[in-house]
């Protein structure tokens, strides 16, 4: 039988000291028990420095808190890549802690957007997120992703993403500060130029570009690789 301990019968500052001794993984789990506990965890003022979302056949959320990394996977449910089913991210979902091999559930069911809000509020993160798209991300519907994630600071689209989906990503997440495109998804030259002409802080473009494309760019940082 598991040993029990009436934690919440201790004085408040002893509870805070107990929580200060816990890693972000377990703090997240305990914060899901009740609103009161969530407030106590939030009051520790553990501030996330960076939150990154990687979307592939699953959604991976990485939260950097000081020297610790809290990694969570969502929709890691398919073993056969050929049978990836489309996902409705508005429905409740469990999170999985890959480093601890543990599935975590909230006392009230949370969808992906709720998870994101909970984590951002517990770890005091208000900045726009970093968002990466990888191969097989097409199983997620772009509008739902936009609704859940909102504006992003850094957008990275890898070459594994289809042209159609890359165009959708660029259409919905056009407010990003830094853009990294591994592949040009457009057939017409002027279409990629419309992207390059935007006022990003940094653009990374790893596909073929022309001198005209280069002259259009008006940004601080630039990473090119394949000039025609």
């Amino acid at each position: 039988m598991e040993p029990t301990f009436p934690l919440f019968r201790l004085p408040e500052n002893a509870i805070v000291q107990v929580l200060q001794n816990m890693d972000p993984d377990w703090l997240l789990i305990i914060s899901l028990i009740s609103t009161k506990i969530k407030h106590i965890v939030t009051s520790l003022l553990l501030k996330a420095g960076d939150v990154e979302i990687c979307i592939s056949d699953m959604i991976c959320l990485k939260v950097h808190i000081g020297r610790s990394l809290l990694a969570l996977n969502f929709y890691n449910d398919s073993n056969d890549q050929n049978e990836l089913l489309s996902v409705d991210i508005t429905l409740p979902v469990d999170a999985f802690l890959p480093l601890e091999s543990k599935t975590i559930q909230s006392s009230t069911p949370l969808n992906f957007s709720n998870w994101l809000n909970h984590i951002q509020s517990v770890f005091c993160y208000t900045n726009p997120l970093n968002l990466d798209f990888h191969r097989y991300c097409e199983r997620f519907e772009i509008q739902s992703l936009k609704d859940a994630i909102g504006n992003v600071d850094v957008l990275y689209v890898t070459s594994g993403v289809t042209n159609v989906f890359t165009k959708e990503v660029l259409k919905f997440f056009n407010a990003s500060n830094n853009l990294f495109l591994e592949r040009n998804p457009f057939k017409e030259t002027h279409q990629i130029q419309q992207i390059l002409i935007q006022n990003y802080t940094i653009i990374g473009f790893h596909d073929v570009y022309s001198l005209d494309d280069m002259l259009l760019v008006n940004i601080i940082g630039l990473r090119w690789s394949k000039m025609v």
Binding site: E2, P3, F5, L19, M22, I29, I30, E100, I104, Q105
Partner: peptide, 28 residues
Amino acid sequence: LTSYCCERIARMLRGKNTQEMIKVITLP
């Protein structure tokens, strides 16, 4: 002494999922 006691309790909670934690901390 307070710090060692609290670290001991934190250790008790590590590795538990939400349901297990609810059982361990016996909510009042």
